[in-house]
């Protein structure tokens, strides 16, 4: 089964699942763009969700989802609280 995922076969499968692949690539595009913007903000300093949202001009609800995603996959951590909001910062290796 060595060739089960080989290039030629994958190519035709991509064609067959064109709609899915397109959908997935769209997801990648959106998340890459958002992650990049968020990461740039919280690389050196911890920020609250409304602060990040304001800085990158994205809805705060969306920012929370992506920051919580960063946290889930070990790329960001929660820091101290500022008023009613917690701050988040990128972990060093990112």
């Amino acid at each position: 089964m060595k060739d089960k995922n080989n290039k030629e076969k994958l190519k035709s499968l991509r064609k067959q699942r064109e709609a899915f692949v397109k959908n997935a690539r769209e997801h990648i595009k959106i998340s890459t763009r958002l992650f990049k913007k968020i990461k740039a903000e919280i690389k050196d300093k911890a920020m609250t969700i409304p602060e990040i949202a304001k800085a990158i001009e994205e809805p705060s609800s969306q920012v929370l989802i992506y920051v919580s995603g960063l946290k889930k996959f070990g790329m960001a951590v929660e820091k101290e609280k500022d008023g009613d909001y917690f701050k988040y910062q990128l972990v060093a290796k990112n």
Partner: peptide, 16 residues
Amino acid sequence: GPYMRALRPSDGKEPE
């Protein structure tokens, strides 16, 4: 959970 604490989803505020 998603936040590991209770926050509101619109902006991460700890609800009062």
